[in-house]
């Protein structure tokens, strides 16, 4: 069959052009809504922290936990004033000292949700003699950290446990310690808020412990 040159150019429609349809009202309305939303979204952000991540300061969490313990001591909450109610609400969400959730946030990455740790790297908490030893030993390890070699449940570990004294309030420490001492077959007594306070009064600010120091100070687990 015979082919014509330029046939593709012949058969095509003209170069495109634009029609004159007006902008739909709905589009204009949507633009208006978005601008209002955008301004509102900025306004909502005013006063929010400038940096990402967990922006609660140590002071805030500590203050909240003190408030909470004070409140607990009094028994009933004084909710007549709005500000008190709000503070209590905030305090509740951060420090009701839910040991399980504190564990899953701060501890489970290394010690695993199962409490079994990772062989050779992170010691298990389940059936650990250290976890079920005197409350002071567990408080010491979690609050001030631990470095150097340690034998746990028959295996040797060489690592560094960070200190959580700056991150967790006394109430949170006691909650998470009580939690790990009662999970995964562990059955040691709960760690009271009071023993945390006593420990704090006795050792104040200090560096990480070693297993040897723990044995010397508190006796073998």
């Amino acid at each position: 069959m015979k082919q014509h040159d330029q046939r593709a150019q012949y058969r095509e429609a003209p170069e495109p052009e634009e029609g004159n349809a007006a902008t739909p009202k709905a589009v204009l309305l949507w633009i208006f809504i978005l601008i209002v939303w955008g301004v509102g979204y900025y306004i909502l952000q005013i006063g929010k922290p400038m940096q990402g991540g967990d922006s609660r300061s140590v002071q805030v969490t500590t203050a909240q936990s003190t408030q909470l313990s004070a409140k607990d001591a009094q028994g009933a909450a004084q909710t007549s004033e709005k500000s008190v109610a709000q503070q209590a609400e905030q305090a509740d969400s951060t420090v009701t000292a839910d040991g399980a959730s504190i564990y899953s946030i701060h501890c489970s990455a290394c010690h695993q949700p199962t409490g079994l740790g990772i062989p050779g790297a992170f010691p298990p908490l389940a059936n650990s003699e250290w976890v079920q030893a005197k409350p002071e030993i567990t408080i010491a390890i979690v609050r001030d950290g631990l470095v150097g070699p340690i034998e746990v449940a028959g295996s040797n570990y060489q690592g560094a446990m960070p200190n959580f004294g700056g991150k967790l309030s006394d109430a949170e420490l006691s909650a998470v310690l009580s939690f790990i001492r009662s999970q995964w077959g562990n059955s040691a007594a709960a760690v009271s808020l009071q023993s945390v306070s006593e420990y704090k009064a006795r050792f104040a600010d200090r560096n990480s412990w070693t297993a040897e120091e723990l044995k010397e100070t508190f006796g073998a687990p």
Binding site: A13, P14, P16, E17, E18, G19, A21, A22, T23, V27
Partner: peptide, 20 residues
């Protein structure tokens, strides 16, 4: 924007919307 009106042989509907 070129191909659709080109193949259909009809103009794109709105110049204003193109601008926005």
């Amino acid at each position: 924007y070129y191909m659709i009106p080109k193949i259909l042989g009809k103009p794109i509907i709105s110049y204003q919307l193109s601008l926005i």
